[in-house]
């Protein structure tokens, strides 16, 4: 069982998350895609920790989780605030910062 498999899986999940960010219009689904990308990165960290034989990778994954949680909190609060004033959760709506 080649541990590289896990890294390849992580790459696939990461790309799927990237597609999700770019293709979906609902802000919350975009956010979930970002979370997916972070999870893919975590998987890679854990796989490498196993490959190298020390726990630094797992500690890094731990920190990623903590920071992602904090980020989700603040990000969703922002989405709620925007929704309150604009009554829409689409990320294509606020497009005034253009030429």
């Amino acid at each position: 069982m080649n541990p590289a498999n896990y890294v390849i899986l992580s790459a696939i999940l990461f790309s799927l998350g990237a597609i999700g960010v770019l293709v979906r219009r609902n802000a919350i689904i975009v956010f979930m895609s970002v979370e997916l990308m972070l999870n893919a990165a975590n998987l890679a960290f854990v796989a490498f920790a196993r490959m190298n034989g020390n726990l630094d990778g797992q500690v890094a994954a731990f920190f990623v989780m903590v920071v992602a949680a904090a980020e989700v909190v603040v990000g969703l609060a922002i989405i709620v605030t925007i929704f309150r004033s604009r009554r829409s959760a689409s990320i294509d709506e606020p497009n005034l910062l253009k030429y």
Binding site: L43, V46, F62
Partner: peptide, 19 residues
């Protein structure tokens, strides 16, 4: 589940609880 399979049980549990 994959984390647990990679000898990271703590992270696996944290993943379930937190995420």
């Amino acid at each position: 589940i994959l984390y647990v399979a990679n000898s990271a049980p703590f992270l696996g549990m944290v993943q379930v609880i937190v995420y």
